[in-house]
Nucleic acid binder design. Structure first.
Lengths: 193, 193
DNA sequence: TGAATTTCTTAAACTAGTTCAATTTTTAGG
DNA sequence: CCTAAAAATTGAACTAGTTTAAGAAATTCA
């Protein structure tokens, strides 16, 4: 059964673990099923797991003082999703992580994972790269936001993540792009002609 | 002489290294002096060092397609400054790192540093925390930017970094806050009354 | 010290993106 | 398959922040 898990595939291919090492990691994991709109994490909670999407789709977002949602991360099967801020600092999160379809996630508890990272350099290297990638993605997104106008951000988003555009409703994509759904709608109608 | 270096102090106190371990790190380092407006890093270069400000002040920024500057990091003596994106990925940077006063920096070459990280867990832990902090700071800044209006960002900045406000010209602070110098000037005049 | 350069301010015209409100279209899931 | 709920669209009024321009103040360093 383990072999059917997408995470098993990820660890044996992308991470380069042996099948037995991968099996050991998976043995420590929990599986969680979520219905559409259910939450995996909510403000005030602490993120104590690394989370891998087996199938389905999720997003992380936070709500500012004026009540506006800002989507920070989108993810579908085969992606990791988390609030690394809370995971790394062990402070309470300000974020929601929510399933946008019915979704299955594998959870690796931080405490157990850290033991395994000490024992398995390959795994450790894999996660180091993941953290770096997360930093890089965040920086890229931040620069993008500061220096690019909404329309360009939208076309760039479509090119970079064509699979995401079909998978998430537009109001979520708008919130990821940092604009209102109404304004995205306007952009789209201009784009068409 | 080594004992006079601010980095020596940082390593023996904040990082908790022994004096001899700290001395070994320092022995691998270079010192660089910069005049006001001189660059430590420019687009296209690769960031191959960790950089510690001995004294003076620096900022990192990038220039978008329309030619606007966006300041990402400010730093004064006792702070690290770098483009971690380029340092971690070993790709060319998009950023400038510039001295805003005459400044002395200690440079730790990545290749040598990584050997030392392997040998010295205390040092390794110190840098792990630094990377995490950088991620956290970036995330905080990004959220802030998305959800807070300029005036609030400004007052928050003043509270969080009172030492920086006096140290950098306003047009740099404006660019750090993500607004034009003219608009910051307006905000300040409202704030006064 | 003093001239040249850099930085800051003010104000008016402007624009990218928001808000509000009402209508239409699409989708979820019993 | 049907209906309630969710999502997308349209347009008009609005606002936070930009642009341009020009003068005033502050700072640098020869």
């Amino acid at each position: 059964m383990i072999e059917q898990r997408r995470l098993f595939l990820e660890l044996t291919t992308a991470a380069g673990l042996s099948e037995s090492d991968a099996a050991m990691v998976i043995a420590q994991s929990q599986v969680k099923e979520l219905k559409r709109k259910e939450f995996l994490l909510q403000p005030g909670m602490q993120s104590k797991h690394m989370r891998f999407i087996e199938h389905g789709a999720m997003r992380s977002y936070y709500i500012d003082e004026e009540g506006h949602q800002h989507t920070l991360q989108l993810g579908i099967e085969g992606w990791w999703i988390n609030d690394l801020y809370s995971y790394l600092t062990e402070k309470p999160t300000r974020m929601f992580i929510q399933a946008t379809e019915s979704t299955v996630v594998t959870l690796l508890p931080k405490s157990l994972l850290e033991d395994q990272l000490l024992r398995c350099p390959t795994l450790s290297h894999y996660f180091l790269k993941k953290f770096q990638k997360a930093y890089v993605a965040l920086q890229e997104r931040t620069l993008d936001h500061l220096g690019t106008e909404a329309m360009d951000r939208y076309t760039q988003f479509r090119q970079t993540y064509p699979e995401l555009e079909q998978r998430f409703p537009q109001y979520i994509i708008a919130s990821y792009l940092g604009i209102t759904p109404e304004f995205l709608s306007q952009l789209r109608s201009k784009y068409r002609n």
